[in-house]
Amino acid sequence: MILASAPQSLLAATAPQGFLSPTGVEIAFVLVGIATLGAAVITVTTRQLVHAALWLVVALGGLAVEYLLLTAEFIAWVQVLIYVGSVVVLLLFGLMLTRAPIGRSPDADSGNRWVALAVAVASAAALVWVVVDAFRTQWIDLDGAVQGSTEVTGSILFRHWVLPFEALSVLLLAALVGAIVLSRKNGENGENGETEAGAGTEPPTATATETARSVTPDKEQR
């Protein structure tokens, strides 16, 4: 089968390009990638919900390092700022507001686990096979000019991608309004004792606004 022969052909095809003598970038990429993948796996398997969020920080941070290794430095910093800085915080708030148990919760995984595992492994096998089969002879030339510097990104973003960018800000506004409407305490739903719970609606609204603010100013600063 193609899948079985893929590693050999990969090795054979990459040998002249120095696969067996990887560059430092490649070693770094693979090591960070393993760490990222491990953190991601722990994120989706751990029984401690708060730990999952923290391991997510590791995974997302690892991805930021990978961006850096791919010379996309602006993306890397945006990743750190938005994901690690706000999204994970948001998720932690969410966990707390829904009274997620601190410590090991035995029922973190649903009964669907084995089916999910089968589907995930199958799709992973299919994807890896196809990807490896397709790109085994392709190389990224990282030696040229830096491709993801803030300057480059800013210039193309505001030169070529202005209209989508503005459309995106409208989308963010809509998301903002939507989040407010969804989490607003409406009179019909919470009559008794809902004032306290209704207070819980405040943080999402705040965080959504914060998210919006944290995304848009970032970009508009450029």
Binding site: V115, S123, A126
Partner: peptide, 18 residues
């Protein structure tokens, strides 16, 4: 259970894609 539906959907997608 939404997850069951989604599992069936994705499994089918994988099979089709393969």
């Amino acid at each position: 259970n939404v997850q069951t539906y989604l599992s069936a959907l994705l499994a089918g997608s994988v099979v089709l894609a393969v």
